[in-house]
Design a protein around this nucleic acid. Structure first.
Lengths: 227, 227
DNA sequence: CGCGGCTTTGATGTTCATCAAGTAAAGTGG
DNA sequence: CCACTTTACTTGATGAACATCAAAGCCGCG
């Protein structure tokens, strides 16, 4: 039997490791949730009760530090396991998760996942692999950010949305200037000024949220050159 | 039968999950290596052939980026799984590892670990837990660093060595000013200047590598206040 | 309509890197 | 052990990168 959720990427991972009767139980235990833009469906401090997977859409992982400042940890796209960074290590979430676009998430009972880890070694390996890959990505991102100038940081964000999310010449930014500031560690005004400069220099066109990448090579050069 | 390696912390983790005959094989497959200070025993790009564990000592994880600049990712102490971040996800190391003090590392054959993950669900769970915890630590560290001023960054480094490594009022810094710069993303001169200021303000005493924390509360306040 | 949040620009000041120069410390070969 | 080289450390002067403060326009929403 196939899942009702036929075009769900998560299956490509699990098909490889689960024998068919396990897969049946797995799919039946799934809940699908359609969320509109701007919904915070995981809150920092909440108890972890389920395993969540982003089937469609775009999300941000964010947290508030002790001083009350909000930081964006990373952006998540389909194939990312939303809750993976805390689920096996902690009892509560150390970050919140909010949709940036209309999104669909799949929710699995935690016990089922835990049982699969215990009884299916290949499944466990896959989970370990995915977890570490995802963590490695976040780590190299923040290390990368730490070493770059404001121009490099903003160029990186714009290129990220084009190359990894939208794949088109022009696109609507799913984040506000403020959110870019929270992600890069820059001030809002600096974010705006840099975007303005890129526009004046003919690297991009800007119509509010809409961005068009005119000189991609130039942007990349700025990103790479900005030690 | 007990390991020859009786006081090795790694056993406390594995004892909980391995049944005794598994444990025997596990211990016999172990190689112990004593390394003096300043030895790079894992090199960025090397093929991953074994699972390495820091039994005693202190290490740094570091990498060079595309521009040739060296970054320090994190410092590792006993109980840290040195090679954990890449071992299950990649074929080669994406970072190097170097001893900062005389250290002892235990080396396990990769196949044995992989087999245990496959055949022992509890063991797999432990590995996942440890991996994610370790990754979460690095992530919160770099996010934390991203948001702080030079004073906050240096205060954090000094407090880290006191509170997590040496536990004493005074200690010898195991890293050079240059390495602190590579870890924080600051320039060498800035690192030196901030340390000097802390000294002038009576927060610490400095005799070359030797640091004594005079006003710990003050240092913490600087760290916490430095948004 | 008016309020609050997002965006933009300018003016100003702080934080930090870079350059230059010099001193101390530590390894190297005789 | 000393002369020599190299590497680590330190300080000052300067400028660039970036934050903060202030003011104003825009836009959606009750």
């Amino acid at each position: 039997m196939l899942c009702s959720c036929n075009n769900c990427h998560i299956k490509t991972i699990f098909y490889e490791t689960l024998i068919s009767n396990q897969l049946d139980g797995f799919c039946e235990a799934r809940t699908e949730l359609v969320l509109s833009k701007g919904v915070t469906f995981i809150r920092q401090g909440d108890e972890i009760k389920s395993f969540k997977y982003l089937k469609e859409g775009l999300i941000k992982l964010h947290k508030v530090d002790e001083t009350g400042k909000t930081q964006i940890i990373s952006f998540g796209k389909p194939m990312d396991f939303v809750s993976i960074h805390n689920i096996f290590a902690e009892k509560t979430y150390s970050y919140s998760v909010t949709t940036l676009e209309k999104s669909i998430i799949c929710i699995f009972d935690l016990n089922i996942i835990n049982n699969l880890v215990k009884t299916n070694g290949e499944f466990a390996r896959k989970i370990i692999q995915t977890t570490t890959r995802s963590a490695n990505n976040i780590i190299s991102n923040s290390l990368d950010m730490l070493g770059r100038s404001m121009y490099g940081k903003i160029a990186r964000v714009l290129l990220f949305f084009q190359e990894e999310i939208y794949f088109t010449y022009g696109f609507d930014l799913p984040v506000s200037r403020k959110e870019i500031a929270q992600y890069t560690g820059l001030s809002i005004e600096t974010v705006i000024r840099v975007i303005s400069e890129f526009r004046k220099d003919g690297l991009i066109k800007v119509y509010g949220k809409r961005i068009e990448i005119i000189d991609k090579k130039g942007l990349k050069a700025i990103y790479e050159y900005s030690k």
